[in-house]
Design a protein around this nucleic acid. Structure first.
Lengths: 199, 199
DNA sequence: CCCGTTCCATACGCAACCGTATGGTTGGCC
DNA sequence: GGCCAACCATACGGTTGCGTATGGAACGGG
């Protein structure tokens, strides 16, 4: 009989946040439906009794987890870019680099996209998407592209980001593997997005 | 009490294919978990008794539906492109146009991406992805790009396709709405993908 | 028109999960 | 060290879905 280990053996009792973290991990692995009270309880080495003290129901946990994700995922990248030096090409490079890394780490985003119609997910996703596209437009405008061009390029860029995230998580074996390949791909993307407009 | 209508009131009895179609519709709307025997039965105006005559279990239906999707989704586009006239730029235009349309229609693809790890889904997705990237590489090579360039561009193009599909289904309100905007975006994508390499 | 094959309805047992109720621990504070 | 509040375990009932069993309806060829 293996007793499922508690995450941090130093703290016997759980906090609300432990559940949120577990929920996000579950979403990353198994999608929204994986946010299930009893399985999570087992994973945390506790029981439903704990859960229903911290949250009124499953939906409340979901909302809390989504809020957490929105917070992290927007503030992190956006803050980082806005605090960057005022060198436009460097900002684009930073954005692309940072965002490719994020795409490959964060498995929650893709999982949420799949359940975009869920009433709790929809608004979160809408806000995050809007913010990210807006950020991209800003960076491109700061590089001298007019608003129209910036919007076109931003949409393409953001689509490419989403697709890259999907690929990285669904069929990683079909993405570039070696460091060299990945570097070249990064440069290609940067060249493509930053290329001067054709007449 | 509303009696759920049967899809085609002319045929009292259902075929295996009715169930497959219903399963695909369910995937499009609610993801893999929406392929549930009893709900589908209700939707079709029948009962489990019918289902378990046509299929041994839920998994069998899933496999059949995935097979159907793979068949359609690959043969349609790939056949269309290969039978196209031998004018390379026209082929790229056709590919992009066709593929943007597909991205907006087919909701099954995005749903599957979210469950890429599922043992029945993984191989299907892997084959479809490989085929599509391969097709894109071919088209680009026929336009004169060397293999390396073609691969880089194909990966970016396919990522953009996947992302576009995601956006169209998850937050359609953030995509281009008017015909004019959509036309311009299409032209932008074509220009970007087909632009000659920078020195 | 009849009879076997094909197809479907119903009833059942089983498992996973939600949410409630209730009583028991544990911890900080005086 | 006692006591209140915070926290957790267990037991229960309800719902949903899977899969099986079994009898009955519908259909078509002889």
């Amino acid at each position: 009989m293996v007793v499922p280990e508690r995450k941090d053996s130093t703290s016997a009792r759980l906090t609300r946040d432990h559940w949120i973290q577990a929920a996000l991990a579950a979403i990353a692995e198994g999608g929204l439906t994986a946010v299930a009270v009893e399985p999570l309880a087992t994973r945390l080495g506790t029981t439903k009794g704990s859960f229903y003290w911290h949250f009124v129901n499953r939906e409340a946990l979901l909302q809390a987890a989504l809020g957490q994700w929105e917070e992290q995922t927007t503030t992190v990248v956006i803050g980082e870019i806005n605090n960057a030096p005022d060198d436009p090409p460097a900002r684009l490079r930073m954005l692309v680099t940072r965002v490719i890394a994020l795409a490959e780490q964060d498995a929650v985003g893709p999982a949420l996209m799949a359940n975009a119609k869920h009433p709790s997910v929809q608004p979160v996703l809408s806000r995050v998407t809007r913010a990210r596209i807006g950020l991209t437009v800003d960076v491109l405008r700061s590089m001298g592209f007019d608003p129209h061009q910036a919007k076109l390029r931003a949409m393409l860029a953001y689509s490419a980001y989403l697709g890259h995230a999907q690929l990285a998580h669904s069929t990683p074996e079909l993405t570039f593997q070696t460091k060299q390949q990945r570097r070249e791909y990064l440069e290609h993307v940067l060249r493509t997005l930053g290329a001067p407009s054709a007449p």
